[in-house]
Design a binder for these strands. Sequence first.
RNA 1: GCCCCCAUCGUCUAGAGGCCUAGGACACCACCCUUUCAAGGUGGAGACACGGGUUCGAAUCCCGUUGGGGGUGCCA
Length: 473
Amino acid sequence: MNHKPRVRFAPSPTGYFHVGGARTALFNWLFARKLKGSFILRIEDTDEERNKPEWIKGIYDALNWLGLNWDEGPYRQSERYQLYKKAADKLIEQGNAYYCECSKEDVAARALPNSTPGYDGFCRDKNLGPGPKRALRFKVPPIGVTVVDDIIRGQVEFAHSSFEDFIIVKSSGGPIFVLANVVDDADMGITHIIRGEEHLPTTPKAILLWKAIYPDIPIPRYAHVPLLVNEKRQKLSKRRDPVALEDYKNQGYLPEAMLNYLVLLGWAPKDGREVLNLDEMINEFSLEEVNLSPSFFDVKKLRHFNGIYIRDLSDKDFISLCEPWLNTSKIEKTSNNLETFSKLAPLVKQRVEVLGQVIPMVEFAFADEVEIDEKSWQKSVLKNKDLSLAILSESFEKFLHLDWDVESLHKSLEEIGQNLGLKLSKTQASIRVAITGNSVGLPLFDSMVIIGRDICLLRISKAIERLKLELSD
RNA sequence: GCCCCCAUCGUCUAGAGGCCUAGGACACCACCCUUUCAAGGUGGAGACACGGGUUCGAAUCCCGUUGGGGGUGCCA
C-alpha cells in the first residue's frame, strides 16, 4: 500500500468563515503536505435553505488568504445529487433503508419520556414507497456496537441501541449530510477524515452507511480534533463570538501569525519553541500528538504573535502591507506624504501588534494642525505650567538654528533640562505633546527630524500661545 | 432524559511511573534598559478537580465522583 493520503476540508457555507474552520483546514493541510498527499476542498451545500453564495466565496477568500491551497476541487455537493440518489437506491434495494411518512410532530409525540428519544421505527415495516412528505430512513441494526477508531481519541464505542433510524434523504429529495459525506468520501478516495469533535457522535452513523454502501472500500481513518471554545468554554459560535477570519484580516492580523497561533491550539512542537514557520509546521506536525481537550481562542496571545511577525517584516513589506489602511485614512497620498510615511514606518513597525494601529500612530505627522489630546496636555504641560512654558520657549529659540538631526535635538533638550533641574524624560514631555499631540508615541527626535523643522517650530509656538492664554485665565 | 468526549498555572501547553521542589509561552506585577511608548533583559505571583485503588513509588495506570463540553434536526 503506497497510497498517498487524501484528506478533505468540507466546510458548509452557512455563515462567514471562522477561526475554528481555519484550524481544521490547517490541520488537514499540514497532514497532507507532510505526507505528500492531497488536500481536497469540498463545499457541503446540501442545506438548500441556509446556503448563500457569498459564504462560498468567503471560504475561498479565507483559504487563499491563509495560503492553504487545495489540490482538488472545490467540489460542490449540490452538483452531485445523482450520486447520493444512487447510493440511496442501493440502500433501499438492499433493505437497509425505508420510507417514512411521520412528521416531526408525530415523532415527538411518540417519543418515550426519559429514554433514548427520537424516532421509534414507526414506519420501519410498513414497506412504504416514495412519495411527497416521505423521508428515507436508514435501518440501524438493533443490536451491536459500532466502533470509531480515532487517531486522536482511540477506540470509541457506540451502542446501536443509543441511536434511532436516522434520516438520510429529506422529503425534498435532498441528501442529509452524513449520506452525502459518505458517498463523497468514498467517491473521492478519502483516506483520512480530520474534522471537529462535534462530528464524533455522528461518525458511527457514517460508518454504518459506509459498510452498507461500500462493503469493499476500507473505511477512512478518523481524527476528531478538539473544539475551539470561548471564554465560557462553549464551542465557538459564529453568532455570539468574534471569530470571523475576515475580521481579523481587516484588523491587520497577518496570515502567518494566524496560522502559527492556530497550530498551537491543541498541538505543540516537541521542544519549547512556539514561533514556527510553515515548513517547520509541516515537518513537525503530527495528528497523533494532538490534544484531547478543547482550547480557548485567546486573542491576546494571537496579538502577541502578530506583533512578532510584524516586527519580523522588512520595512518594505511592512509599508506595502500598510497600504489598505493608508488608503482608507485621511492621509492624502501625495508623494511627499508617502515619503514621510516610509520614513516613519520603521519606527512604527516595532510598536504595533496589528496593522490597524498604524495610522493613529502616524497621523500627527500629516495633519495641518495637531489635534492635542486633552489628557496629555493636562498631564505633560498644564500640570507644571511655568516649567512647561520655559521648556517650550527655550527650545523654540534653540531649535531655530540647531542642526536638525536626532543627536543635536537630544543634546539640546538635555541641556535645557539640566538648567531647569529636569531629566530628559520630563523635559521632552511637553515638547512631545506640542508636536505630536500626545504624551506617548514614536521616538520624538526621529519624528521631529522626519516632519521637519518648520512644522515643529510652528507647533511649539502654537503650544506656547495656548499655554500663555491658559496661564492668564 | 439518553449517548459520547474532556479534565496540569487565568489562558495555550510540556509532562507517556521515579529526571517534578511540575518546565515554557501569553496575560499580570516589580525592577533594569530607556527621550514617551514599545521591544529586550532579570525576577515574582500562579496549576496537577476530588475520592478510592494499583505500585517500593503516580500529574502520569484503573475505578468512581464532581465539573465542563459536544451530540441527540427532513442543519452541517
